[in-house]
């Protein structure tokens, strides 16, 4: 099922396996909804995580992150493929 009507609440998705734990997204987030996770990912980094709510879809984290595929930001009104968990 895709998102058809337009996403109501913005959302950030972090692909942990592509994250190098640099922390730049966390530093940049104006809403402080990103944090360093305790576990290690496959590369041995502590990946960034999303608290699960509070993202306003500003995209600051996306433009700070050096990894092309690590962060996806879905803004309010997004229509398209289903948003990953």
């Amino acid at each position: 099922m895709g998102v058809e009507k337009g996403l109501q609440v913005p959302k950030v998705v972090i692909r942990e396996d592509e994250c190098k734990g640099c922390g730049l997204c966390i530093q940049a987030c104006p809403e402080n909804v990103l944090f360093v996770q305790k576990h290690f990912n496959r590369m041995g980094y502590h990946p960034a995580g999303y608290q699960g709510e509070g993202c306003i879809g500003c995209g600051f984290c996306f433009y700070q992150c050096p990894e092309p595929g690590a962060i996806t930001v879905y803004k309010k009104g997004y229509v398209g493929e289903e948003v990953e968990a």
Binding site: K20, Y74, Y78, G80
Partner: peptide
Amino acid sequence: KVLRKAESFYPLYERKGGAAPDVTHYCP
């Protein structure tokens, strides 16, 4: 309405290969 990996990147970095061909070689 979405900020995601650009189409102008390869979906998988096959020329890089190795154990993690989906991430860049750059330092954190």
